[in-house]
């Protein structure tokens, strides 16, 4: 048992949750984490920071899900939350096109601040509100179509969920975790390659002394000094 435990590597990921009011962020977060808390969950009302632990591909993963202040008045403070985030869930309501526009502005902001270090997941919530036909066809919805195309264009992943009927949520978090693990792996490899290439550079000991060419003033000063001496 203990030997198994030692073989597992550990990863911690920070996921920020973004979305306009009433798109179902809270429901999504709680629906996912409630499986863990079950009955004890009712004793606490603090839902702005939740964690979820599980094991995937021999890796012990801990997801910290941070709810961000979504109101317009707190908009400028968003970057404080995004700091060091590994993933972001950008939630929109599949029946509300305005909520998708908001997602687009957040994507821009996240890319500006975190670059490609963050895995973005655009989540269309409330699929239970789709007609049975649309549910079976999947993407037969104008807003979802637009969101999918947009997600592809910004290198984000698109998911459809229903917190109400508990559909697609586990898959969403599992997939996001896999993507974050892959992203981490990639970053690690890139760092290793960099360090290796700098280590294998010939005739260098990791220290370079760069001397600036003398400026006119310095040259003048030198000549003056020479003259004095």
């Amino acid at each position: 048992m203990s030997s198994n435990a030692t073989q597992l590597s550990q990863q911690q990921f920070k996921i920020v949750l973004l979305g306009e009011g009433c798109v179902g962020k809270t429901s999504l977060m709680l629906r996912y984490c409630q499986n863990k808390f079950t009955e004890n969950h009712e004793s606490t009302l603090q839902a702005s920071f939740l964690t979820k632990k599980f094991i995937i591909n021999n890796t012990r993963v801990q997801l910290s899900i941070w709810d961000t202040a979504g109101q317009e008045r707190f908009h400028a403070l968003g970057p404080i939350y995004y700091r060091d985030s590994n993933g972001a869930l950008l939630v929109y309501d599949i029946t509300d096109p305005d909520s998708l526009s908001k997602v687009k502005s957040w994507v821009k902001e996240l890319r500006k601040i975190r670059g490609n270090n963050v895995v973005l997941a655009v989540v269309g919530n409330k699929t239970d509100l789709l007609s049975p036909q649309q549910q079976s066809n999947g993407a037969d919805n104008q807003i979802i179509d637009e969101a999918q195309k947009y997600s592809q264009s910004v290198n984000a992943y698109h998911y459809c969920t229903s917190a109400k009927s508990n559909r697609g949520i586990d898959d969403l978090f599992l997939d996001l975790t896999k993507k974050m693990l892959a992203q981490n792996q990639l970053i690690q490899e890139q760092t290793q390659v960099k360090s290796r290439s700098s280590a294998s550079a010939p005739n260098q000991r990791g220290l370079t002394i760069a001397a600036d060419p003398p400026t006119d003033e310095e040259e003048g000063a030198d000549t003056r000094r020479n003259k004095c001496c």
Partner: peptide
């Protein structure tokens, strides 16, 4: 159902 206090409320 449980009532949830989110970031906006907390701030």
């Amino acid at each position: 159902d449980p009532i949830c206090i989110m970031s906006d409320d907390l701030i």
